[in-house]
Design a protein around this nucleic acid. Structure first.
Lengths: 247, 247
DNA sequence: TGACCACCTTTGTTAGAACAAAGTGTTGAC
DNA sequence: GTCAACACTTTGTTCTAACAAAGGTGGTCA
């Protein structure tokens, strides 16, 4: 496949958006739109930098950004190739509410319990706090399309934000956390399966022993502060996790 | 928390290992060992570069590497802080065999079926090939600690490598792929749950209807070529997925 | 013909330098 | 005493420059 000449990229040097990002964004768009087709090779970075009017480090940074996202592949002596037309993010750190809302499923939430209490040992440990931490403890039932989908148990450190039943009924926990300035940035999850207990079956309108997907998660914000512990149970017949992962 | 003086870092300028990586690795070690405790702040990058005897770009690259991995956090005007003592990789792209072997569980594999055939439609689609693709189709039973753990169905494009029953009994599929130069770099997974079918129950020595964790995956190599399709069923009582994810 | 070497292309690494932008803290005016 | 302006600290962006290393190609010589 022959080299592909990248069209002119409009640059705004007065903009607060960094040059490397302007270039990267434009390249990404060209690839997504198919103007730079999968399999084709880019010009070499020196020429490209010259033609677009940026320095080589800036050009390299833009390319590195797309390599990181899995759209481009580079090899010394060979060049830069387009290998995928869509961004391949590692994994999106989203909540169930976000996922459903994005799909236009209009989720509904029923708050079963909301109380302030001392964190149980296993929760305190998951949050990385020695003990004696005050948390808001929440139990919610999530519906989608009018059908129950999941039971969600969450703990949020009390000093992060005040949580009310009304807020939670209308918005997802992650949305509330973000609005309060505690953006989840990293999370550690364990995904497993189990048979529904009698209680779970009753709450979810499923039969006892029905297969359930379980997820236990701890999330941290940018500054490394634990913002959420969650232990959820999903009806396997109605939910599964999709992940894209990179080495 | 006061600034922390980073101890001297030994640099080998004749080594093929890049300087920024030597610095990053040493820093990572210091953090993991607790010599640079969580919450403490690093010296500013200019001073640090000077003291360690590298240029500022090199120092920045080393730090950026650790920021990317979630160990450090930087803020303009503030400095660089240690927020986590362990590397937080997005998600490791490993196979079940790798995971078990790493835990010292000495996995055993029984090859139930190995044949060359035309890819079924849903497999061809998952691999991103229009159709008419010849694949090696494999069905394996994976044991751990003498107990059956999972049933694994895989498809590997025939032209990638020849697979024999003997190879698969001794080594994991990913290990074989890597050895053949087809290193899996990206994968797309769907994780769900289901109740064991009669066949699955019999093969896994579990009861019919027992909860099972399911995983369907397509993996690509560095060049964007599909190298594997897999559809696996794990006994939920004996296995779960652990993931770390970043936004 | 075939193997090996030299050369070309392309990305990777490192350095030095200057200015911009974001936070923090301090000083001074009112 | 309060608040705004300013200075200082620290990271972020951008540029120029040079050399190293890896992959491919073509030519020479046996």
């Amino acid at each position: 496949m022959p080299d592909r000449t990248v069209p002119e990229v409009p640059l705004d040097r007065t903009s607060p958006v960094p040059l490397y990002f302007q270039v990267a964004t434009r390249l990404q768009q060209l690839i997504e739109d198919g103007e730079l087709p999968v399999g084709s090779r880019l010009e070499n970075e020196v020429e490209l930098a010259e033609r677009l009017g940026v320095s080589r480090p800036t050009m390299r940074r833009a390319i590195a950004y797309l390599v990181e996202r899995g759209m481009l592949v580079r090899r010394r002596g060979i060049g830069t190739q387009i290998v995928h037309p869509k961004v391949r993010r590692p994994v999106e750190l989203t909540s169930l509410y976000d996922d459903l809302a994005k799909d236009g499923q209009s989720p509904r939430t029923e708050v079963l319990l909301l109380e302030v209490r001392r964190a149980p040992d296993h929760v305190a440990e998951a949050l990385g706090v020695p003990g004696g931490l005050d948390i808001t403890w929440i139990e919610r039932l999530r519906f989608s399309g009018g059908e129950p989908l999941a039971i969600m148990h969450n703990a949020v450190p009390l000093d992060l934000l005040p949580l009310t039943e009304a807020d939670l009924a209308e918005r997802g926990l992650y949305e509330l956390l973000r609005a309060a300035g505690h953006v989840p940035r990293m999370a550690s999850q364990t995904v497993g399966a189990k048979a529904a207990s009698a209680t779970e079956a009753r709450q979810l309108g499923d039969s006892r022993g029905a297969p359930m997907l379980t997820m236990v998660r701890t999330a941290w914000d940018e500054a490394g502060r634990a913002v959420e512990y969650g232990s959820h149970v999903y009806r396997a017949s109605r939910y599964s996790f999709e992940l894209t992962l990179t080495s």
